[in-house]
Amino acid sequence: MPRVMGLIVAVFIGWSAPVWAQGNLNLYCSATIEWCQPIARGFERETGIRVTLSQKSTGEMLAQLRAEARNPRGDVWWGGTGDPHVAAGEEGLTQAYESPRIAELHEWAQAQWRQTEGRTVGVYASVLGFGFNTELLTRKNLPAPSCWVDLLRPEYRGEIQMANPNSSGTAYIVIATLVQMMGEDPAFDFLRRLHGSINAYPRSGTAPITAVARGETALSISFVHNAAEERAAGFPVGHAVPCEGTGYEIGSMSIIKGARNLAAAQRFYHWVLSAEAQLAASQEAKKLQTMANRRVPLTDGAPNMATARIIDYDNARFGASAERRRLLARWDREVGALPR
């Protein structure tokens, strides 16, 4: 009846028996299904290894990894924001691996790999910025924002949305970015002043840009590629990368500790870092993020990590759960609890 159970039994029994067929890979994927599928199919075509794909958001996937810690069912975890990957590494849920392709990657991807002692590697990056509804701005006769300080303009009062950092990794990256750019106290001062202009802190990270697309709010602090995707879907959405500089999120990959198909997982890891694999999958899924391999050209309309002023994001410090808890508690105390 249960194939998963069968796999386990097969693996345990299989220690003495010869290895069967081309093998299997249990791929845990935290990007959108449109992106996960071409990757899984591409790997199957390339190697003949059968991929069983399971798609969940990063937070849900981390919860699942924890629940399965004593009896892991996944082999490799691809995609989704980096912090949960880093947290999983801290908790010993993932294992280190070194692929010869590490040298082919952009510096930010290599940096994450070094900082996590090889447990997690960057596979794509998304830049933080603003999304705005062009129609609504025209109707209200408002200028489009281009810098962080613009957000404090009085005419934007009640028009900005940002996700709740307690629930959304995106919003936490906003705080971490501001702290790294301005220093901690000025950053919280900025967030306090911004608080008056914000009409809601929705719980999900993509909710603000969805609200912008549907004209429910004029501005949002979001990932630039999300704004570009809404625009591609036919909504009047524009985006900007802040002039003072901005932070970014690294979509990451880790090999799960205790992976049953370790060899297949390592082969996948190696394959998916290649420029060909990254290009094919991201084009099929129409993704606008920057890919980790340096040889992948930038998609049209995608924000350029090279020209935007990107800060040197300190993943080791801001990905650690103690620092995260401290900053979130401070945000709760000094910003979230204030009346508007």
């Binding site: 937070g59 849900e60 912090d83 709740n164 307690n166 629930s167 990794g169 719980r203 808890r325 979130l328």
Partner: peptide, 16 residues
């Protein structure tokens, strides 16, 4: 926020 959303994000959100 209500309890059910708080629980969801306590498990899967930034706090974990």
């Amino acid at each position: 926020g209500v309890l059910s959303t708080e629980i969801f994000f306590a498990v899967v959100g930034a706090q974990q």
